[in-house]
Amino acid sequence: MKNKGKDRTESRRDFLKNTAILSAGAMAVSGLVSSCGDQPAESGEKVALLTASGELVEVDPSQIKKVRKEKLGELQERGREGLAGHHWVMVIDLSKCKNARKCMAACQGAHELRPYQHHINVLQMQDTPSTAPYYMPKPCYHCDNPPCTKVCPVNATFKRQDGIVLIDNERCIGCRFCVAACPYSARMFQWFEPDYTEEQKNRVYDVELNVPQKRGTITKCLFSADRLRKGQLPYCVSACPNGVYWFGDKLEDAVTNGTSKETRKFSELIKENAGYTYFEDLGTKPQVYYLPPKNRTFDYEPVDKFLKEEQPSTHHESSTH
């Protein structure tokens, strides 16, 4: 988690976030969530705290507060609101994907998923028998006309102002209507109890990370809403070694490549490469665009399309936290 090149407020938020994660010691700074305006007067004294990323930082003791109970409510509220003035968009360059599956691993790690749960899933595709096969990463498309949020009976899944479709697993009743409604198979259900320790289970639920996962509720790709809040690229985008992913803001008309960090005009990238979205006839208006698998210069090596049997009782190599 790098904080370079960010203004003071953002790094403070970042810091807050890290400390909140660190809150195993039950102490964290949460007053900083609110704007800088209503900070209490500083006393001049400083207390040293270790952040989750291992940095030692100093903070005024007056700003240290116990994690409040409303924390969950605050996270839910800001998670529902989203980031004003953005409309996130992803571009996936199919000509680049070599099936490294680093995106899948990073995603499963961050969101604490089982090996068969894929917020992002790299599929092996072949359009026709006479054309070359290719690999196709498939996250949630964060549709602008999402069939899934419409059918939710309790508003547990919703679309935010920045275009992200999220799920609140503290609200979800587990009816799975959204799974039935999603034509892209983007949604998964927690059929079993996640293998958490009591401590992991009792963490404050972050709706933008969907962690801790909860049995009997839905989980899905979140466009890494927690990372976007910190001004960082999504987990999958950052993890890709092959330059497959571009991620950015449609309103700025700019997308950044997760590997090369090159930034380009979104509209140009789409136009030059004949970018498209899947199944436009469904009218769902996906916000994940694809660049066709052209000029591929590496071999296609098919791998097993199915995993070995599911092992519900063993959690995989688990979380980053």
């Binding site: 939710c152 009976p153 309790v154 508003n155 979800c172 587990g174 259900f189 927690q190």
Partner: peptide, 21 residues
């Protein structure tokens, strides 16, 4: 069939008229 039958009251509490459920 519900994954969280303990939250059945969410239906009247947070019900959204758009949903056929």
């Amino acid at each position: 069939d519900m994954g969280r039958p303990d939250r059945v009251l969410n239906i009247p509490l947070h019900g959204r008229l758009q949903s056929p459920i």
